[in-house]
Design a protein around this nucleic acid. Sequence first.
DNA 1: GCCAACGTTGGC
DNA 2: GCCAACGTTGGC
Length: 154
Amino acid sequence: MNYWLFKSEPDEYSIDDLASEPDQIGRWDGIRNYQARNFLRDQVAAGDSVLFYHSACKVPAVVGTAEVVKAAYPDPAQFDPESAYFDPKASPENPRWFCVDLRWGSKFAHPVALATIKADPLLQDMVLVKQGRLSMQPVAAAEWEHLLKLGQKS
DNA sequence: GCCAACGTTGGC
DNA sequence: GCCAACGTTGGC
């Protein structure tokens, strides 16, 4: 069982959007970065735990948790010429981009802001701190535990 | 909306 | 196979 951090722009798809889905299960898609693609395709498994992070917004923060309910499968948007995520170089025989399905888990009472994470000595090794622009990334078990505590306490 | 970090692409 | 150009991401 692995831990991950998934980023999403709340204007596009927020933790509340995920919570509002039927059965609270939604597709996490639109990844067009190869590092993230490789993690998603090769390492993310059903049952893995996910920190849900809001990016490209006023206060970037970890805002809750989710669980992977379906491992990587080809992102349908890459085959759709009407989609903003269309990729002419991808084909159903040779998909280039992948997505997973998530089930909403929890919403933090207190979102943990990026600034807080950067200032926390226990979280200095997070990929989030060391490498800014990566839309999904592995999280260590100790980091997961610590972030959950921060999110729940007042 | 600027631009830095990272990865891929493609001309030579 | 070098490396400049380009695309994506995302904090500021």
